[in-house]
Design a binder for these strands. Structure first.
Lengths: 194, 194
DNA sequence: AAAAACAAACCGACTGGTCGGTTTGTTTAC
DNA sequence: GTAAACAAACCGACCAGTCGGTTTGTTTTT
């Protein structure tokens, strides 16, 4: 009986991502999600306590994905890590363009909803801390120029987010993958010691 | 009767900004806006054709504000303009912290609604063009290092937006005014020829 | 091995309430 | 007096969430 249950839950999540992205958290109704997932409302409330609980589950899944990719880069040296991130940008842009409205939705909900805010802010601060430590290590190693790791971390994250936002607003306004690659090159070049 | 009418309209807009920011476009109802503005629904629909029309009016007003500040910097030299922007960051951060969810709301709605998208994308492209031309001029003048003006423009806008976003998510997580100042210093220093 | 007992998964009609928008009637200004 | 400005009652559609009942699969008993 477990297999069917898992499948249903996966289908709900899949439809939820699709519909929250397309219409927003408020506008995407539970009825819509159920219809899209091909299940009943009863099944929905069997798997999730509330609409918000589903949203939090989505957030959790998304964070797990990021955690995995961060974990994967744990073994590398500092410049290697940054090189990897730089090279991953086009891929991120490409894949994020679909999930991005969803990401923005998290952001917006977090700024309004205490529960969602707390679920968002902890991992955000954790990533920031990790990034800052990485840069600090790079500076201490001598592979980076002397910068304030705290600020540099915020700057890098800002760039990534800003580019994603722009690519969301105007997908055909520029070759975003190219812009992303060049932008991060500019940033990293300014950071790496020659 | 014109005076009272203008006052009512101004009150509707004021309440709309407040409530759209606080609850989002969908969640902020016309009833809520009317109640907050201290008017009736009849008065609302006398002044605005629809909820969306009000939203577009808000966008229009916001764009006019930006236009004015861009116009004000038309007279300056290129490095002067950038210096001004750099110094304006703390002010922007400070004032935007309340209006930012509204700004994000525009973004999100634009990614879903054709009408709002068209009202957003034209000025966005115009600003980008203006910014690119500014950097190009700076490069040609010799005051900037050799960069692709297109990319540099996107990068600068990205940084600004990313910082605003981060400050929205975690207002007390950092001294954002300081981070903004330092970040733009980093960027401009990398751009200006010494 | 078959029946009985059980529990998880699921269904869909229903509820109380809210939504954007309309209609109808009243007030206010000129 | 008449037209713009506003108020209030109202409409059908839709919302998140509930609930009594049904199906489906597993475990226990015989």
């Amino acid at each position: 009986m477990q297999h069917r249950s898992e499948e249903t839950q996966a289908q709900i999540i899949k439809s939820a991502i699709k519909l929250f992205s397309a219409h927003g958290y408020t506008a995407a109704s539970v009825d819509m999600i159920c219809k899209d997932a091909g299940i009943s409302k009863g099944a929905f409330y069997h798997h999730f306590e509330s609409k918000q609980a589903l949203f939090l589950a989505l957030l959790d899944g998304w964070l797990t994905t990021i955690d995995k990719s961060v974990e994967a880069s744990r073994e590398m040296t500092v410049p290697e890590t940054f090189l990897q991130i730089t090279e991953a940008y086009p891929y991120i842009i490409k894949t994020a363009s679909q999930g991005l409205p969803m990401f923005l939705e998290f952001w917006l909900q977090a700024s309004r909803d205490k529960k969602i805010w707390q679920a968002s802010i902890t991992p955000y601060r954790r990533y920031h801390k990790y990034f800052t430590a990485l840069i600090k290590k790079g500076v201490e190693e001598g592979s980076f120029v002397e910068v304030d790791p705290e600020t540099a971390s915020r700057l890098i994250v800002s760039t990534a987010m800003g580019l994603l936002l722009q690519s969301l607003l105007d997908p055909n306004g520029a070759k975003w993958e190219k812009v992303a690659k060049e932008s991060s090159d500019m940033l990293v070049n300014g950071l790496l010691k020659k």
